[in-house]
Computed example of a mutant assay.
Amino acid sequence: MPKNKGKGGKNRKRGKNEADDEKRELLFKEDGQEYAQVLRMLGNGRCEAMCIDGIKRLCHIRGKMHKKVWIAAGDIILIGLRDFQDDKGDIILKYMPDEARLLKAYGELPEGTRLNEGIIVDDEDEGAGDDYIEFEDADVDKL
């Protein structure tokens, strides 16, 4: 008879669907912390982020968040700065989209920050909506 080797299957390792993040208190930055926007994910629990102070930093996802909070490019995060390395930091918190909008409304984030990085709006090309071709009935009959 085979022995039981563990405490359960892969579903146990995934954990419960914790929905307590919906109503959490909005955390503002303190000294030694900075807001940033993720530029790209690098793998191995690291990402490249552009901080609000204009410095591009290599950030490490802390162990409490690793494989529990998924971070993607364009997300607004809170970074803990390092005293001994100015170009590196640790990700403390990922802001949900509604929290990021509140931060922008409170003036914590600059006005030029684009919160929805996946949506590209091009203000220069205002006639972009007119990119269609009209066919007349005679043209359709030739096809």
Rank of each mutant, 00 (worst) to 15 (best):
K10P: 11
M50Q: 12
A128R: 14
I92M: 06
I91M: 10
Y132V: 12
Q85E: 14
W70I: 10
D90A: 02
M41L: 15
G9S: 05
F84Y: 13
L109V: 08
G9Q: 05
Y132M: 09
G74Q: 05
L143A: 07
A36C: 07
G6H: 02
E30I: 04
K3F: 10
D139Y: 06
H60K: 10
L109I: 10
D98R: 08
Y95I: 07
A36I: 03
G43E: 08
G127E: 14
D98C: 05
F84A: 01
K88P: 03
Y106M: 08
K88T: 09
G74M: 05
D53C: 07
Y95E: 04
R114A: 12
G74V: 11
P97A: 06
L103N: 01
L103P: 08
R46E: 01
L42S: 10
V38K: 00
D90V: 14
E48A: 12
M41Q: 09
M1V: 11
E34F: 03
E22N: 12
D90G: 00
N17C: 10
G43S: 10
G80D: 03
D86E: 14
E18A: 11
K10E: 05
R14S: 10
K10C: 05
A73P: 07
E30L: 01
K3C: 14
G129R: 12
M96D: 13
A73E: 11
G63K: 04
D125L: 07
D31Y: 06
M1C: 13
G6E: 07
R114N: 13
D90F: 00
D83I: 00
I76E: 06
K13V: 01
V121G: 06
G63F: 03
N4P: 04
K67L: 08
D86K: 13
V121I: 04
E30F: 00
K5H: 02
I92F: 00
A73F: 05
R57C: 07
D141R: 14
R46S: 05
D87G: 03
K5P: 01
V121P: 07
K16W: 03
N4C: 12
G89E: 00
K3L: 14
L93T: 13
K23E: 15
D123H: 14
N4E: 06
K29A: 13
V140R: 14
R40I: 13
E99M: 04
